[in-house]
Computed example of a mutant assay.
Amino acid sequence: MRRLTTSLATTAVAALVGVGLASTPAQAVPADKAQVLASWTQTSASSYNAWYSARLNQSAWSAYAFDWSTDYCSSSPDNPWGFPFKNACARHDFGYRNYKAMGTFSANKSRLDSAFYEDLKRVCNNYSGATKTACDSTAWTYYQAVKLLG
């Protein structure tokens, strides 16, 4: 009888726990998700820096359910001719994926593409002379590609 009582008690507790979990509402995404997303997808260096800092500490932003996935520069080189465009491509993916998920991509695409171009130009500002000219030309090409095909 003792085994039966223990077994029934264990089953009852498991059932109650299951009911409790089923009735607990899912955690809502913070109300300011759109504002945070907008702040990380502007054309300024400070916007890029804020996004990059958050990217390095994604767990702190987990409640927002952002899509941090990236394929970097897709089928184009991430570092063409040695120019490190990889992080600019990652931020561009971040903007595209999250605005698409929110259903507001069309209204934000132009700004996302402009932010991408500004990020690329900031990379190019680390060079001078013919190297900077080559970088700027490559940045323009990448920008035109996402503007037309993105």
Rank of each mutant, 00 (worst) to 15 (best):
L148Q: 13
T104V: 09
C135R: 10
T104D: 11
S23G: 04
D119T: 03
V17Y: 05
T43Q: 07
L112Q: 14
W61P: 02
K33N: 06
A9M: 04
D67W: 11
F116N: 01
A26T: 02
T138Y: 11
Q42C: 00
F66T: 13
V13C: 08
L112Y: 09
A31W: 10
P25T: 02
L21W: 07
Q35S: 10
Y96S: 11
S114D: 15
T104Y: 13
G129I: 02
A88Q: 05
G95C: 06
Q27G: 03
K109R: 14
A101Q: 15
T10K: 10
D119F: 03
A12V: 09
P80A: 08
C124G: 03
Y142H: 11
V19A: 12
V146R: 01
N79V: 06
N125A: 12
A134L: 12
K86Y: 05
V19K: 06
G82V: 09
D67A: 11
D119A: 08
K100M: 12
T11W: 09
G103L: 06
N57A: 15
C73I: 11
G20R: 13
T70V: 07
D71A: 13
A115V: 11
G103Y: 13
G129W: 08
W81V: 02
T43K: 07
Y99G: 14
S39K: 10
Y96R: 12
T131E: 15
N125H: 07
A14C: 09
A63Q: 09
F94D: 02
S137T: 15
G129V: 01
W61S: 06
N98W: 03
K147G: 02
A107K: 12
D93I: 00
K109G: 00
